[in-house]
Amino acid sequence: MSQPRNRAAVFSAGSWGTAVAKIMADAGTDVIVHARRAEIADGINTTHRNSGYFPDIELPTTLTATTDPATALAGAHYLVLSIPAQSLRTSLAAWAPHIGPDTVIVSLMKGIEIGSGLRASQVITEVTGVSTNRIAVLSGPNLAREIMAGQPAAATVACLDEDAARRVQQACHTPYFRPYTSTDVTGCELGGAVKNVIALAVGIASGMGMGDNASAMLITRGLAETTRLATAMGAHPGTLAGLAGLGDLVATCSSPLSRNRTFGTHLGQGMSVEQATAATRQTTEGVKSAEAILALARAHDVEMPITEVMSDLLHEKISLDQAAAALMQRPPKPER
């Protein structure tokens, strides 16, 4: 007798949510995507394409869509969340009554909540009351467009419950997507959140005409300050040297497909924050999270100069030239 197929509800139908929905469907899971817009859901159901993000890529027939959260969550073994970090609390409160008692919640979000300083997994626990053993994080160097094209990629699935992490791992393991497991939820989430801020800085440097030396400097020193904060908050340093740390940082800082790097490039070319937001068009978590990450750093007495400069620049406290000078004119010190 064959085993019943797993079922996953993916909220939402944006670029990364669609990519993970496709991964899970290709791995043998029945997937239903929750879309805010009826035309997106209808397109997925009738043409097997997400016209808003990937109109050129056909989706598996085991991937369907709905605009009704209750329908999406009915019988779901996994709830995959891919929404802006700053709207998580409000949105999840509306969806929580439909979450099953055994559903594992998988966070794809890479941001820190403004005001509370909470990571996504902490917000999920606070809003739903779900045990931390049922909350996983998936993070790594995962550019959605490449994954949709079936290009090789890997990620880390972190959960305090190793068995739950392995179940999520199996639910998204395909010939082109290789997930590893971890129990370091804190390290994975902070690696994913801070790298967005560093990618903004790399994009700015590129937009200002700086070369690869400047990019390498920002990536390397960005990893150092990410590791300082994460370990101060209880993460394992090895996590930041892995896929959810260095891997994600390199991909996000190096690729023109990265929305955070692209946003930074617009700023470096002279756009205002408002103009860059309009030009980028998608959620850029680094812009929203920089201030919250800096508050965490100060609360834990951690020095994060790149994050501090980026926060000041995004809030228009300093100019581009002042930002570059602030980073280059810091007192010399031992590397660590």
Rank of each mutant, 00 (worst) to 15 (best):
A205H: 12
N45Y: 14
A154G: 13
V194Y: 07
A292E: 07
L200H: 00
L143A: 12
K288M: 09
G187C: 03
P101V: 09
I219E: 01
Q269F: 00
P101T: 13
D184P: 11
G270W: 04
I32T: 12
G191I: 08
G245D: 01
T252L: 09
E225K: 00
D301L: 08
P141M: 07
S311G: 00
A232T: 05
S116A: 09
G100W: 00
S87G: 07
G150S: 06
A13G: 09
R261Y: 14
L229S: 00
L88Y: 07
R37K: 15
P4W: 04
Q275W: 08
L240H: 06
H236L: 09
I83R: 03
A295M: 10
A85W: 02
I114R: 15
I83G: 09
P69Q: 10
A171P: 04
S15G: 05
F263W: 00
F54M: 08
H173R: 11
M24Q: 07
D26K: 00
K333I: 03
L160H: 15
L118C: 07
T252H: 07
A171Q: 06
D212Y: 11
T156F: 03
A153P: 05
Q275R: 08
G111K: 00
A279Y: 04
T62G: 08
A72P: 05
L267K: 02
P331E: 11
T220V: 10
V194Q: 02
D42M: 06
E58P: 03
T125Y: 10
L313E: 04
R298G: 02
D102I: 04
M328C: 11
A297E: 05
Y53E: 11
L79I: 09
V157Q: 05
L313Q: 08
V123T: 09
V127Y: 04
G111D: 00
A199W: 06
R119G: 01
S91K: 09
I44Y: 09
T132A: 08
E316L: 13
E303Y: 12
E316K: 14
H173D: 11
A35V: 07
A323Q: 04
V127L: 03
L223W: 03
L223V: 01
G234W: 11
S15H: 02
E274K: 14
I105C: 02
P179Q: 05
T47L: 14
A72R: 04
S206K: 14
Q282A: 14
K317E: 15
E126K: 10
P175L: 02
